[in-house]
Amino acid sequence: MRKVIFFLLVLSVFQSYSQQLLDENIQNLIEVYAEKKEINCEITIDIEIEGMQIPQKVITVNFEEGKKPKVKGKGLALVPKKGMINQFNELFNTPLQAIKMDENGEELDYKLVSLINSSEWVTADIRFNSITNQIFESTINTRKHGTIKAKHSYKEYEYPIRSILTFDVKKFKVPLRFIGRQNQNIDLPNGDDQVQGKIVLQYRYIDE
């Protein structure tokens, strides 16, 4: 019994120790992104997914930590659940372990591992500039929504002005025959039918 208690004690100490051992680069990122509680911005969304045609939309979004984004805009807008700028806040507000994978001058590659089961993401590969703390690329593996890859472009602000998200999504199909067309095959939704989706987001920050 004493041995078990001792083991658990050592494990918890090791966990907290390892967090305290997050290197300076990650600490800087945490400082920049975890601290930001609220962001207001205007986003232009272009969605390219097979089986879906949606015109470009411009919306105003209020991101608040821990809450669903508040969206204002004309007509219908499809707002991606993952991959938006609030992802950064989500990443760095989660207890994590960071492993340095590569270094290329100022450009660093890290693998982040979530240390809690309740987080929506499991692992994240990030590439960022250690001086500017701007994350250029990320590949986030989520529990429910698969893998989301993102490429970010920046101006001067620490948040991106343009992001390109790519992810696998089930092909959207409806088993309805369009009678006005010739030579159509009936296309039933298939569970294994995956296509690549691409979303381009352009940001304009309101409280910059």
Binding site: G75, L76, K81, F167, P189
Partner: peptide, 15 residues
């Protein structure tokens, strides 16, 4: 009808 979209997106607006 739009449930497969709901997996990946929030549908905002007057549907």
């Amino acid at each position: 009808l739009l449930q497969s979209i709901n997996d990946y997106f929030y549908l905002e607006g007057n549907l």
